[in-house]
Write a protein that binds this DNA or RNA. Structure first.
Length: 894
DNA sequence: CTTGGATGGATCA
DNA sequence: TTGATCCAT
């Protein structure tokens, strides 16, 4: 069940989701820069230990990329290109590279991301997909009631494919408010009529997604110090594609309408999954280079030429359709490590083999231990992988074996045994110590995790049963597809003008605020300021020399950067270019995207000219001005505006509480049949149901103060999305967590006991210290004595009976509510039976585990009190429009 | 020292 | 389920 392979959404929901891909910029480098602040702003690369030729480069920061340093290079080569480059070595433990530092950093980031959605899928150490559909939908509603407003300054560093700047994209949407059906003629030609409602809303919803993306990235930066790029689109493939189009520290929307022109020139290999053999096969067998060319084949054709599954997949992908769901996963399914033994380092002796197996097993062991403490799970399977040299040929093999214990010795013994029994002649004939086949690669990995205790298992099955029950209910209601569809109800006219004036007012206000500074003339001649310059600009600002000088330079940087992009593929570089070779990162020069963008501009100019007469009526020139000004804001807005201690200025302006907030009018509604609407409502609950199904398994209970949330959990201070279900789930989680702690602490004590028994007596060991207390966080010093005193576990009762009944949540929906006698919370009447079932299950569980009052290990509390950064952020947020508008929302809706 | 190491996920027979 | 292979970062 935990191995649920990919899930997919239904074809009818292809445009309904909003998916975010967050990709950390040169992540390993950022980790090093954070660790060594003195490196900030300097060219830097991370190399892997290998002393040969300066080590292999696995990450390059942008300052170094500007000088031509790339991955795959050796450290020495990098030095030649960039004499002052800083080469950070990956730490070496056990004679092999140790990347745990970066794994930890990745987790730190993921913890922040997790707050924004429970549908978080970690794709690698530095990438994650977020399905933010629900939040977007909420905001669409709030937009309609006027309780949420888009704020242009949240869109700094935001791009939309096919548009010169985000302002134009906003304008496009704005125009549609004025005339909702303005694009329908084109839509009808390009899309299935059934998709029209979704298509009409697509741009707006993506824009809202971009706002959220901005918040996400700002939170990541504020709380971890790391910068990232993001893509916003309707599915994973597109989000991933978009994220790569503007980097670093930028985000990109991929609008639906831009897919065809983009794909016409998009090399097939740019799509995730087609960068390798499969992509080549596709190109060869279809005789295509660009994804758009695939359109000429029917699905049947593709299935015939490739295979059924790939054919269908490709057919969809070529149309920008990707149905793969964002599958929530926070922790990896396996833990492994490996090492190459090239050339003379081939392992040829039994002793050596044992040695290295020991090293690998030792690392696995360490990481498993850590994992156990965090996740209370144990690996049930191990896999040995190895590459042997069999008369000159490299032969790869892997063998697996069930696992009961995972101590180092067992791992070594078993892996050795596996290799032995799967090699025809393991030892060289006549020798006791020499291997017959040299080993060139060795790896051990463990997986097939199971919860450590049976109690935990029963808790999970309890949740699973509950989920199953919900599913049955859903099925009875005739709901199949778990995707929320937004459909609006109240048609409104005449709002477009209001929105325009909002932006106009906004811009006016800004102009006054920045009096004079944004009237600085553009300085296109000042081309190609190197990146380092911008960083020093930032510094200059911080040291309070804000005015025209740095402003103008920054602005000219933006201008020149854009100009660069436009001039890109015209002639090769002029001699001028050589004078400032660092202005454009080399990978940009030949980048497909650069060419695409440039081409788009040309196309656009043509279109504008030919369209002039048609759109003239709609004061398009005015909108263009707005766009230009919005663009200006993008460059001027990086000025620190108020005093934000500790929050970097670039981020803080996303959260400016002083910001004027003006409601956005709601868009005109496409007509909708009631029946369909009902279905959609039903499917919304289905989404929630589906989520709880996986909730226990994946979610991290400690990490759920929400940025978009409205209610504070009394237990942990977390901000909880203000819907009943989320509240209840959150409470349930405290319960489960408490249970977990209990069990873990038991486990640890037991482990401690047996260890003590085994290894005589070491000094009086303190009651197992589960969390390595490694992170030297800023705030840890303050909370020394009283706050960290162990909390008695009997507080578990608190979860069942909160101190005072919560206020009935202001109706998110109009569903009737009831007060649960058991937990004093308000629950939808419809959900009450199920809710009571849950209490029953909890009681059962308690009895099952014979919960007693015990003390809790101190260190586990660490996470339950959010670090000050969180607090600050949350309080900041609470004072912003989000909070303000939500109250407005409630008062209005009642 | 052989052509990018280490790591993790997914697919398919 | 397992082992081989591919893919991506």
């Amino acid at each position: 069940m935990s191995n649920s392979t990919r899930a997919f959404v239904g074809m009818q929901n292809k445009y309904d989701r909003v998916v975010l891909l967050v990709d950390m910029d040169c992540f390993f480098c950022q980790v090093e820069e954070k660790q060594h602040p003195e490196y900030q702003g300097k060219p830097l690369a991370v190399v892997q230990y290998n002393p040969w030729r300066g080590g292999g480069i696995i990450a390059v920061n942008y300052a170094a990329r500007a000088k031509g340093v790339t991955r795959h290079m050796r450290g020495d080569e990098a030095k030649e290109l960039c004499h002052d480059i800083i080469l950070c070595k990956v730490p070496n433990i056990r004679e092999k590279a140790d990347t745990s530092k970066y794994r930890d950093a990745g987790k730190e980031v993921a913890n922040v991301l997790q707050r924004f959605t429970q549908l978080l899928e970690r794709a690698s150490v530095d990438e994650a997909y977020l399905d933010i559909t629900e939040t977007v939908n909420q905001r669409v509603e709030q937009l309609q009631t006027g309780s949420f407003a888009l704020k242009p300054e949240e869109l700094v560093n935001c791009h939309a494919v096919g548009y010169d700047n985000i302002g134009e994209y906003v304008n496009k949407i704005t125009n549609r408010f004025a005339n909702p059906y303005v694009d329908d003629e084109r839509y009808v030609l390009a899309y299935d009529p059934n998709d029209l409602p979704a298509v009409r809303q697509s741009d707006l919803r993506l824009l809202i997604g971009a706002c959220i993306a901005g918040e996400v990235r700002a939170a990541v930066k504020a709380e971890t110090g790391y910068e990232c790029s993001a893509g916003i689109a309707h599915n994973k493939i597109l989000a991933k594609l978009a994220a790569g189009m503007n980097k670093p520290n930028k985000q990109t929307i991929l609008p639906l309408a831009q897919i065809p022109p983009l794909f016409d020139q998009l090399p097939v290999g740019k799509i995730k999954g087609m960068g390798g053999k499969f992509g080549e096969t596709v190109c060869e067998t279809l005789g295509v280079k660009f994804l758009g060319q695939v359109l000429k084949y029917s699905e049947k054709d593709l299935q015939r030429k490739l295979d059924e599954k790939s054919g269908t997949w490709l057919h969809n992908i070529a149309r920008g359709i990707d149905l793969e769901a964002v599958t929530p996963r926070f922790y990896s399914k396996s833990i492994g490590c490996c090492k190459k033994f090239p050339g003379r380092n081939n392992i040829t002796g039994l002793k050596t083999l044992q040695h290295w197996l020991g090293e690998l097993a030792s690392e696995i062991n360490d990481r498993l231990e850590k994992d156990f403490i965090e996740n209370n799970r144990k690996a049930k399977q191990m896999v040995v992988q190895y590459v042997q040299d069999i008369d000159g040929q490299e032969v790869a093999s892997s063998r697996s074996m069930p696992l009961n214990q995972c101590d180092q010795e067992t791992l070594v013994k078993q892996s050795l045994e596996l290799i032995k029994t799967n090699t025809k002649t393991f030892l060289r004939p006549g020798s006791e110590a020499a291997l017959n086949n040299a080993i060139k690669f060795l790896g051990i990995s463990v997986g097939k995790f199971e919860s450590a205790s049976s109690a935990q298992n029963s808790l999970q099955t309890m949740f699973a049963n509950q989920a199953a029950k919900k599913r049955r209910i859903s099925v009875e209601e005739g709901v199949e597809k778990p995707v929320v569809v937004v459909e609006q109800t109240k048609p409104k006219q005449t709002e477009g003008g209001k929105m325009k004036s909002f932006f106009a007012n906004y811009l006016q206000a800004r102009k006054e605020e920045h009096n004079g500074t944004d009237k600085v003339d553009k300085m296109p001649s000042e081309e190609g300021l190197p990146k380092e310059e911008t960083k020093s600009d930032k510094l200059a600002e911080e040291t309070a020399t804000p005015l025209n000088a740095s402003e103008a330079r920054k602005k000219s940087f933006f201008e020149s950067f854009k100009k660069k992009m436009m001039d890109e593929s015209v002639p090769k570089d002029s001699s001028d270019d050589k004078a400032t070779p660092t202005s454009t990162p080399p990978e940009f020069r030949e980048s497909f995207f650069v060419k695409y963008l440039k081409q788009q501009r040309e196309v656009k100019k043509d279109a504008e000219q030919s369209n002039e007469n048609t759109s003239k009526a709609d004061n398009s020139s005015e909108m263009q001005d707005l766009a230009a000004e919005l663009d200006d804001i993008e460059s001027t807005n990086n000025e620190p505006q108020q005093t934000y201690e500790s929050v970097p200025p670039e981020q803080s302006n996303n959260y400016n509480p002083q910001q004027e907030v003006v409601a956005l009018p709601s868009p005109e509604q496409p007509s909708t049949s009631k029946r369909k609407l009902e279905q959609q409502n039903a499917s919304e609950t289905a989404t929630l149901t589906d989520f709880t199904n996986t909730y226990v398994e994946y979610a991290r209970p400690e990490l759920r103060p929400g940025l978009i949330s409205f209610v504070k959990c009394e237990e942990c201070g977390a901000q909880i999305p203000d819907d009943v279900k989320a509240l209840q789930t959150h409470r349930d989680h405290h319960f489960a967590q408490q249970l977990n702690r209990q069990l873990r602490s038991e486990q640890r004590e037991e482990a401690q006991r047996s260890r003590l028994n085994a290894t005589k007596t070491t000094a009086a060991s303190p009651p197992a210290k589960p969390v390595p207390a490694k992170k030297a966080k800023k705030a840890s010093g303050a909370t020394a004595a009283p706050t960290t005193t162990p909390k008695p576990v009997n507080s578990i009762t608190k979860f069942l009976a909160p101190k005072q009944p919560l206020e009935p949540p202001p109706s998110c929906s109009n569903a009737p509510m009831e007060l649960c006698a058991e937990c004093k919370t308000y629950v939808k009447s419809v959900d009450m039976p199920e809710h009571l079932d849950f209490h029953m299950a909890k009681k059962l569980q308690r009895e099952l585990n014979q919960l007693e009052v015990r003390t809790i290990i101190t260190a586990t509390n660490k996470k339950s009190t959010p670090p000050p950064a969180n607090k600050k952020l949350n309080s900041t947020l609470n004072s912003t429009s989000a909070n303000h508008s939500i109250t407005k929302f409630f008062t209005q809706s009642n």
